[in-house]
Simulated scan of single mutants.
Amino acid sequence: MGFELSVVAVIFFISAVLMGTYSYTMMGTSNELIDDASAEQYRMQLSKLQTDIEIVESTADGFEGTYNLTVSLTNTGSESLRFDRMNVIVDGNLESYTYDNVAATWTPSETRNLTVTDLSGSGVHRVKVVTENGVSAYGSYLV
């Protein structure tokens, strides 16, 4: 009976050591993932704080049933942005846009134009431009 009790005690001890080692490894990996996610969250928040855009002018042209909207934007923040990763919303509808054949990187203090084609309707309209990190600017124009 003494030998069996010793064997069971050794099995329990080895199991406890293995489970402790496994748990420590998993907790270390989890902490690394949390640290990486926290660093990424800080980077995203800093990028958002340093981003600002302004709609300088919104101009509609070509009024034969449909029109084209040209929006002039200035990057007033200190963060370089991707001009091809923005969203343009006109009267609550997500619209595709084109821009001048220039580099996709939009540097601070630079003014650029984008064009939304085949819009319809008359009166006052609202346009919203949203950057890749969620900062937006609003404007209105008259057709």
Rank of each mutant, 00 (worst) to 15 (best):
V56S: 13
E95M: 10
D91I: 09
V56C: 11
L5H: 03
S23F: 01
N75M: 10
P108R: 06
D61Q: 15
G92I: 02
S109K: 11
T107V: 09
E40A: 12
E79S: 15
T74G: 11
S109Y: 01
E32V: 10
N68G: 12
E32R: 12
E64L: 03
V135K: 08
E79C: 11
T105R: 05
T59S: 10
N31C: 00
T131H: 04
S47E: 01
D84C: 12
L33R: 03
M44E: 05
T115F: 00
L94H: 06
S78P: 13
V124W: 01
S120N: 11
D61V: 11
T117L: 03
D36A: 02
T105A: 08
M26Q: 05
Y99E: 02
D118W: 00
G92T: 03
S15Y: 09
I14K: 14
E79K: 15
T25H: 03
M27Q: 05
I55K: 12
T76Y: 05
N75K: 11
F3H: 14
V90G: 10
I89C: 10
Y22T: 05
V143M: 07
T115I: 09
K48T: 12
M26A: 02
E132L: 09
S58H: 12
Q45S: 07
E40L: 09
A104R: 11
N68C: 05
I11P: 08
T66Y: 04
A137H: 09
S38I: 02
T21C: 05
E40G: 04
E95K: 12
A60H: 07
I89A: 09
A37C: 00
Y22A: 05
S58Q: 14
S120G: 13
T74W: 05
E40T: 09
N75R: 14
L18E: 08
E57R: 15
T59E: 12
A39G: 03
D52Q: 14
M86F: 11
G2Q: 10
R82S: 13
Y67L: 02
I11Y: 02
V10C: 12
V88I: 15
I89G: 12
V143S: 11
L18D: 07
M44W: 01
L46S: 13
P108H: 04
G28C: 00
A60V: 06
N113M: 04
Q50Y: 04
G62C: 07
S140C: 09
T70I: 09
F83K: 13
T74F: 04
E110T: 10
A104K: 08
A37M: 02
R126F: 03
Y97F: 10
E110F: 01
V135M: 02
V102F: 02
Q50C: 06
E95I: 00
G2W: 00
V71P: 12
G139W: 09
D84V: 08
I11T: 12
R126M: 07
G139F: 04
V135G: 02
R43W: 00
S120V: 04
S6T: 12
E64D: 06
I14C: 13
A104F: 04
D118F: 01
G121T: 03
L73D: 00
R112F: 02
E95H: 00
D52R: 15
F3K: 14
E79H: 14
V7R: 14
G121P: 07
T107G: 01
A16I: 07
V116R: 07
S72D: 06
V56P: 13
